[in-house]
Design a protein around this nucleic acid. Structure first.
Length: 890
RNA sequence: GGGCGAAUAGCUCAGCUGGUCCAGAGCGCCUGCCUUACACGCAGGAUGUCGGGGGUUCGAAUCCCUCUUCGCCCACCA
């Protein structure tokens, strides 16, 4: 890596080699010694996933923090992994089968699973490989997979433990059923979405013909499974009817009218049809009144044999139409209203879920939730941004039992065996071949576990749990979890519960929830919307560093990342341009560092004697130190955009725009002190590369290794993060160099305004300069003359007839003789306008200072500052008037 | 229905504890430059009722109230 930097920066040829270097040096594995390990668990992408911007964002943020921690010398472990992703993966393979005209049932369970495994073996490594291309410094040797053999042991262990503690139970309850995936879902997996729908008001006649009742429903087809109508016990309107029977229309069944407090008398007619097999509330009412539970649908959501023959086999929506039509024909359809309500959708396929009575396995969550709440309340876990803590709390407080069984094949099979001989069931860590009770034959439960039932163990299982491994002892609990808020309930909260339950300790101290990648219309990027950006395209065109820079700088805490999929240039060019700037600054510097005789090692500012430093040197050292402070501070607060900004601003605006320009004469030998300039430039550039490395690791590594004095094999990835240095705080230099910048800027403005020809020098005189400015100009005269293209610079009295001037912040006037190049009329107008503007400010300021409330209540320093402002302005007005006179303005 | 977030330049967004980074950055736009590190660049420039209204305060983009508009999360009123 010692060949010179190529004249043009091309990330494509550079990144792979750098990444290989890191891997070969083993920098991604945590160092064995050292305290305060920094541990991050990667949210596992699905095994079949292809890299998208969400991964790009999430992994960049993790990598920035991991690299930062590593540079701070902390043993740093970022554990990567993949998720077998039950439904999602099974759906992918089932779609492939469908193209061949087959279903999983045609193949049978084992052959299907073989097919799944073959598919996953092929695609499983893709996503992890792609994550490497963005620079992820995860410890690949520790990659976990939520469906490997070891992980299965962890899952079984957890299941059995919970079972033995009575926290897992099996029973018939209303669950969310996806008629397309043909499985039960948890509450979280049924995404509620508000939709415009309708509500039908149906009339049910009394069995004795003495009258009727009206009920309202959004799902008329379920009336075929009604087993009662409920009214509130205190509802006067219906009191007399309670206990009577209704003739359920379209059927030959009679159903009772019951009184139940769950009914809201104010809603609709105050009478509710009760369908215990298809609605959670109705299920409860049904239990209280011993009502029949009539499941009217097949798993595919077609009408089952439990309904009259003419409805059987109809899709639920066809059945709905048919039911409504028949009610209308019978004159029992009272009215239809528009009704907006929330409907659950399968989070994997979008199908409307059917609440349905079903025999499933559940985890009792209340006992798990209590310690998880406590952990947050006592500060054992914190959220960034904090507001997520409240959302976490609300969810846990209202938590319901977790349906964990899935009627899928791709997943951890439920470790329960049934013995038909003696009617017992047994949860077991190992496969059972015979009933432990009667030695009779056993059969294993057909269902598999919710994929999140394995994901929630990531922090433990990825470190070896249930075995008490050295990794587990050393790296649990982790430091920070970085993920998207979408999976706060699915994953984050459950990991906290699992960690507390099985390990007695939270799995991580901090949860950093970052935003979502969206397009310019604020829509989530997704394959189906076609508004995605392929990170690999971006990396190919702009480089991984540019991708990372854009993602980090565009992502402030608590906000979303907006990118325009139709205009990659706008989003990613700034990152590439910055990399290019850095590359060229490095090229310039390296070509001028050659043969630097002064020792470049050691801690600056010891490298050179303090008295050798020029104003510009001291300024850039102080600016660099400020950047170190800013970047470090920002990192600790997860304000990664600010950290990137600090490095960006320092490198570009301070170092490249000013310092490099200021020292060119010294570097070229046109001014003394070249060695000092080289030493300082080297130190601050080195520091800046370190600051930027977590964000743009490839280019900084490539450049850094070429700096002189590097030992073979020395890597920036493991170099030390810079520390602030009290000796680098040159406040006076900050102030004085700012004046130099101001002079240069003023002269440039004058030059532009008066059309001084480029390349033609002008003479400038500064009058009334403060001691600081005089000192600054004395030291940096060369810089000012060069950057402002002056032919001469003097400090002293203004010559008569000066043609242009600028007032500097220290009160001095910059007077620029421009000879015949100045348009007198224009100058008079300009001075007049400026005088009027300042006069306005003076008037306001006088009013402000006359306000006693202000002068007495504002801090003295503020009042003093305001007084000074007034004086300055008054003086400037006077000076402007003088100038106008001198020029003969009227 | 409940809760949360957002609204600042043409666009995407910073602006942390009310004052001394207070009106900023990047992109875009305009002007002038191929100044031997960089045209993926350099030097200038224009553009803002800080969503509307009210309040607190000596002082508000910043705190409070309210309205409007977007977005997100939660919710068993059928």
């Amino acid at each position: 890596m010692t060949e010179p930097l190529s004249p043009t920066y091309s990330p494509a040829g550079l990144e792979a080699g750098i990444y290989r270097q890191w891997q070969e040096a083993g920098v991604f594995a945590p160092r064995a010694e050292g305290r305060d390990p920094f541990v991050v668990m990667m949210p596992p992408p699905n095994v079949t996933a292809h890299l998208h911007m969400g991964h790009g964002l999430n992994n960049t943020l993790q990598d920035v923090l991991a690299r930062w921690a590593r540079m701070q010398g902390r043993p740093t472990l970022w554990v990567p992994g993949t998720d077998h992703a039950g439904i999602a993966t099974q759906n992918v393979v089932e779609r492939l089968l469908a193209k061949e005209g087959q279903t999983r049932f045609d193949l049978g369970r084992e052959p299907f699973l073989d097919r799944m495994r073959a598919y996953v073996a092929e695609t499983g490594a893709t996503i992890l490989q792609q994550l490497r291309s963005i620079g992820s410094s995860a410890d690949w040797g520790r990659t976990y997979y939520t469906f490997d053999e070891h992980y299965s042991r962890a899952v079984r262990e957890v299941f059995v433990q919970l079972y033995e503690r009575g926290r897992i139970y099996r029973g018939k309850y209303i669950i969310n059923w996806c008629p397309r995936c043909l499985t039960a879902l948890s509450n979280e997996e049924a995404e509620k979405e508000e939709r415009d729908g309708r509500i039908w008001h149906l009339r049910y006649p009394l069995a004795d013909g003495s009258g009727s009742l009206v009920v309202a429903t959004t799902r008329p087809e379920t009336m075929l499974g009604d087993s009662a109508v409920a009214v509130h016990p205190d509802d006067e309107r219906y009191r007399a009817l309670v206990g009577k029977e209704l003739a359920l229309p379209l059927t030959d069944r009679r159903i009772p009218i019951v009184a139940d407090a769950a009914v809201d008398p104010a809603f609709g007619s105050g009478a509710v049809k009760v369908t215990p097999a298809h609605d959670p509330t109705d299920f409860e009412i049904g239990k209280r009144h011993g009502l029949a539970q009539i499941d009217v649908m097949t798993p595919e959501a077609r009408m089952a044999e439990t309904v009259p023959a003419r409805f059987q086999g109809l899709d639920r929506y066809e059945a709905r139409k048919r039911v409504v039509a028949e009610f209308e024909a019978l004159g029992l359809l009272v009215k239809v209203e528009e009704h907006r309500h929330a409907v659950g959708h399968c989070y994997r396929c979008g199908t409307v879920v059917e609440p349905r009575l079903s025999d499933q396995w559940f985890v009792a969550m209340a006992p798990l939730a209590a310690p998880a709440l406590e952990a947050y309340r006592t500060g054992k876990v914190t959220f960034v941004p904090e507001r997520w803590g409240e959302i976490y709390t609300q969810w846990l407080e209202g938590i319901r039992d977790w349906c964990i069984s899935r009627q899928l094949w791709w997943g951890h099979r439920i470790p329960v065996w049934y013995c038909d001989a003696c009617g017992t069931m047994h949860a077991s860590r190992t496969d059972l071949t015979a009933c432990p009770a009667c030695r009779g034959p056993v059969r294993q439960d057909e269902d598999v576990l919710d994929t999140w039932f394995s994901s929630w163990l990531v922090p433990m299982a990825s470190l070896g749990w249930p075995d008490e491994t050295p990794d587990l002892r050393r790296y649990y609990p982790g430091t920070v979890l970085i993920t998207a808020p979408e999976i706060l309930f699915f994953w984050v909260a459950r990991m906290i519960m699992a960690g507390l339950e099985f390990r007695g300790e939270v799995p991580f101290r901090t949860v950093y929830l970052h935003g979502t990648v969206r397009d310019t219309q604020h829509r989530k990027m997704s394959k189906s919307l076609g508004n995605g950006i392929d990170p690999l395209d971006v990396i190919g065109t702009y480089g991984a560093d540019a991708l990372r820079y854009t993602v980090v700088s565009g992502m402030s805490v608590g906000t979303d990342l907006i990118l325009d999929p139709k205009d990659l240039e706008t989003s990613f060019a700034p990152g590439r341009n910055f990399a290019n700037k850095l590359w060229n600054a490095a090229r310039f510097l390296l070509s001028n560092l050659d043969g630097a005789p002064r020792p470049l090692a050691g801690r600056y500012p010891d490298v050179v004697r303090p008295e050798e430093l020029t104003l510009a040197d001291r300024w850039i050292i102080a600016r660099c130190d400020a950047a170190v402070r800013a970047a470090t501070e920002a990192m600790t607060k997860f304000r990664l955009n600010d950290a990137a900004g600090a490095a960006y601003h320092f490198l570009w605006s301070d170092f490249a725009d000013w310092y490099v320009e200021a020292i060119k004469p010294r570097l070229y030998g046109d001014a003394p002190g070249g060695d000092v300039a080289r030493a300082v430039a080297y130190r601050v550039f080195d520091t800046a590369l370190r600051l930027l490395h977590p964000v743009m690791p490839f280019i900084t590594e490539a450049v850094w290794q070429r700096l002189p004095g590097r030992r073979a094999g020395e890597l920036l990835a493991t170099a030390a993060w810079p520390r602030p240095d009290a000796r680098a705080r040159h406040d006076d230099a900050l102030a004085e160099f700012a004046l130099v910048q101001e002079v240069v800027t003023a002269l440039r403005q004058i030059r532009a305004e008066y059309g001084v020809e480029p390349g033609k020098g002008i003479e400038a005189t500064v009058t009334g300069a403060s001691a600081a400015l005089r000192n600054a100009l004395r030291q940096e005269e060369g810089t000012v003359r060069r950057l402002a293209k002056l032919s001469a610079l003097a400090v002293g009295n203004a010559p008569a007839g000066a043609a242009a001037s600028a007032v500097l912040s220290d009160g001095s006037t910059l007077v620029v003789p421009l000879g015949g190049m100045v348009d007198l009329q224009k100058e008079c107008a300009r001075l007049g306008a400026e005088r009027d503007r300042l006069a306005g400010l003076v008037a306001n300021q006088e009013k402000k200072l006359a306000n006693e409330q202000f002068t007495s209540r504002a801090p003295a320093a503020v009042v003093e500052g305001e007084r000074k402002k007034l004086a300055d302005w008054q003086e400037q007005v006077a000076k402007l008037e003088e100038r106008r006179k001198a020029l003969g303005c009227t």
